[in-house]
């Protein structure tokens, strides 16, 4: 593996190798000394064009636990149309001797472009409305830990699929790992062409919940209302929000997941977010293990 640009690129064996490696990495969390010497002398750059303390911190912790040097390059505010171009930034980072660049960027495909300009590895930490592969990996990791497997699980993803990089990565990865995915959203928030995805489509959350092993709620931004994707927040929440009554329709073992940050009261009620079914907190811990695994698999061997 040279780069991790999209979940779509991961074959089944590769994905499982990442999850297995993450499993070993997670054992580190139980030790008093949470540090491995593995990537000593390697430099990982966090290149973030969007504010995301959560994801950046997770990658930073992962790299540091593997003893890599970490440089945080926050390009937030340097809007893409003004200031230094991504290409110039990439060449600068390369000259500084970075071995891997973890990039978060508002433009879909920016990590692909970056990978064509630099020699080191590129990890996509979320690009526009395209993909967020480490999020999907940590979601699969969380499902495997809680439910023992991913294969044959029924996973329901609810919300703004159109604008969601988390949904795109999850649909691809879960399909690769043998889960069945159902997307539930108002038709306005599903992309044209979604019928070619390896997923079922439903507009009726109540009909899908009793058959779901996992329900994953996506964030819905209120701005979408102004662009006529749905009439009001209230109507959205009534039709597609997960409240306690709806949660009661789930099988006993079913999990509730959310990639965060949550909009409580919109797509998820507080009592759901805080319930024992919710994996929101452990998703954060698992994120570090999965990102350690990805960094190790990208940088742990010879550079070709």
């Amino acid at each position: 593996m040279k780069h991790l640009l999209s979940a779509e690129d991961l074959g089944r064996d590769e994905a499982i190798a990442i999850l297995d490696t993450a499993e070993q990495m997670s054992l580190l969390g139980d030790r008093s000394v949470k540090k491995l010497p593995t990537l000593r002398g390697r430099t990982v750059v966090n290149l973030f064009y969007e504010d995301s303390t959560r994801t950046r911190t997770s990658f930073e912790l992962a790299a540091k636990r593997l003893s890599a040097d970490v440089v945080n390059f926050s390009a937030r505010g340097s809007s893409v149309s003004k200031g230094e171009s991504l290409k110039d930034t990439a060449l600068t980072l390369e000259a500084m001797g970075s071995d891997a660049v973890v990039i978060r960027h508002p433009a879909s495909g920016a990590p692909h472009r970056l990978s064509s300009w630099i020699r080191g590895s590129v990890v996509n930490a979320g690009d526009g409305t395209h993909e967020h592969p480490t999020q999907a990996l940590l979601d699969a990791f969380t499902m495997r830990r809680r439910l023992g497997r991913v294969n044959d699980l029924s996973v329901t993803i609810v919300g703004d699929v159109l604008h969601s990089r988390v949904a795109r990565s999850n649909v691809r990865l879960l399909h690769t790992l043998g889960a069945g995915v159902t997307l539930v959203a108002p038709p306005t928030l599903l992309p044209v062409g979604v019928e070619t995805w390896p997923a079922e489509i439903s507009y009726d959350l109540d009909a899908v919940l009793p058959k779901s092993d996992v329900v994953m709620m996506l964030r819905v931004q209120a701005e979408r209302m102004n662009a006529a994707f749905f009439p009001t927040e209230r109507e959205y929440s009534r039709r597609y929000g997960l409240d306690a009554d709806r949660m009661a329709m789930l099988p006993d073992h079913a999990l509730v997941m959310h990639p965060g940050p949550m909009v409580r009261g919109m797509e998820i009620a507080s009592e759901v977010a805080d319930s024992v079914r919710s994996t929101v907190v452990e998703q954060v811990a698992n994120g570090v293990s999965v990102r350690m695994a990805v960094l190790y698999l990208l940088l742990g061997g010879s550079p070709e």
Partner: peptide
């Protein structure tokens, strides 16, 4: 770094 990445 002397060879490809080793599985854990």
């Amino acid at each position: 770094r002397l060879r490809g990445v080793r599985p854990l």
